[in-house]
Design a protein around this nucleic acid. Sequence first.
DNA 1: GGATTGACGTGTC
DNA 2: AGACACGCCAATC
Length: 108
Amino acid sequence: MEPSFYDQVFELVRLIPKGRVSSYGAIAKSLGAGGSARMVGYAMSNAGSAELPVPAHRVVNSAGLLTGKFHFNPPELMQELLEQEGVTVKDDKIQNFKKHFWNPLEEL
DNA sequence: GGATTGACGTGTC
DNA sequence: AGACACGCCAATC
């Protein structure tokens, strides 16, 4: 099976350093998908089906909200993982999001 | 192979 | 400030 959009998303997400987070839009842009940030999120839904583990908890929306936390098992796991990596999360949203933000376009 | 579906983003009202 | 609407585009049914 040839590398699909999903695989590209998975690989990029795996490149996110520990303690850092990124947004769907930034990832999509980095893949050349432009404004198709939905594809990134949709791909992440398949993250559970990925062969290699994907740190989906490091990917949030542009507002820094843990929109996909309900897709975890359990849902609160996402916040737990982030806090374990030094990211403060309150009310399902990342504090200092801008500070923890990892831009694949610049860092990569 | 057309219709449906999103873990989004940005702009309006 | 909060709620609503539309656009984008690939994968799945």
